[in-house]
Simulated scan of single mutants.
Amino acid sequence: MADLGRLNQLPVLYSTPQGIYLGGGDHGEILLPNRYVPRGTQIDDVLEVFIYRDSEDRLVATTERPLVMVGESAPLRVVSVNRNVGAFLDWGLPKDLLLPFRQQAEQVFVGDTVIAHVMVDAKTDRIIATTKINKHLNKAQPIGFKPGQQVALVILGETPLGYNAIVEGTHQGLLYHSNVGATLEVGQKLKGFVTAIRPGGKLDLSLDARGYQRVAPLTDQILQALQAKGGQLSFDDDSSPEAIRQNFDCSKKAFKQALGALFRQRRIRFTNPGIAAVDIRESTGQEWRPEE
């Protein structure tokens, strides 16, 4: 049976001038319009398609992928408002996604970007959005997550401890202020790492990998930046967290650890302000080897 609002693997049944029809199980035959039919498609082929409803409420398939699917949450832009039904969001498909008035945590306006959760309305069997996020996030103990795993994050809002974030579109996690080092915006998308899994389905998060997994790639990045800038950079221990995050995509704590590692290896020197590259072979007359 085809799953509304998600990706499906469906068989090709037959072709018509409008497109090809796919087997949708209990949903019957579902049209894949010609503009989405992959070249060379044959009867009995199995295609991966997204199933939703067109402007006339008929089930239709597409090989395009929306920005978010049923059961997921993501930042979406408000493109129009109808005073009779609600707002419409751009989710990457020709037909915009309805955000009914009753599902708005607060009033939205054209041009706003809102954190929306996508679901199937039980009464109408239509795909709709809601900005009442918390009650729709998965609160079961996370399965498939592990400490150190890189994950996609969307910032929900700030708390006294840090920033709440949606993890991989389904679960909630917390980025502690000590692991951020810069101001984040609601709706901001970024990569992070799971640091701990807590009872109740919540995750502790960080914007940086831990230990050498974090420092080693960052030292390489700093050396590459030095090379690109002729051996000198204006960044050092005193640079602002915001500038470090913007230029190196890491926290100030991680940046300082990487600078310390490079300094101990005698790869850089501090120029106050900034840093400069050091050629170890010139300064020692020996082939340089990294510290054990």
Rank of each mutant, 00 (worst) to 15 (best):
L203Q: 09
L203F: 11
D204P: 03
L205G: 08
L205W: 07
S206G: 14
D208H: 06
A209P: 02
R210E: 14
G211E: 13
Y212P: 04
Q213V: 15
Q213N: 14
V215A: 01
A216G: 04
A216T: 12
L218H: 05
L218A: 00
L218E: 00
T219Y: 03
D220S: 11
D220R: 14
I222F: 01
I222K: 00
L223P: 01
Q224F: 09
A225L: 07
L226P: 02
Q227R: 13
K229T: 04
K229W: 03
K229I: 00
G231F: 05
Q232K: 13
Q232D: 03
L233Y: 03
L233A: 05
F235N: 01
D238R: 11
D238L: 09
P241T: 02
P241D: 04
P241K: 03
A243K: 11
I244V: 14
Q246T: 07
Q246E: 14
N247C: 02
F248K: 08
F248M: 09
C250M: 04
S251I: 03
S251Y: 09
K252T: 07
K253C: 00
A254C: 03
F255G: 13
F255L: 09
F255I: 06
F255S: 12
K256I: 15
K256M: 10
Q257A: 10
A258N: 07
A258C: 13
G260K: 06
A261G: 01
A261K: 12
F263Q: 11
F263I: 01
I268P: 05
R269I: 06
F270V: 13
F270N: 05
F270Q: 07
P273T: 01
P273A: 05
P273S: 05
I275N: 00
D279H: 05
R281F: 12
E282H: 14
E282L: 15
T284L: 07
G285Q: 09
G285L: 12
E287Y: 15
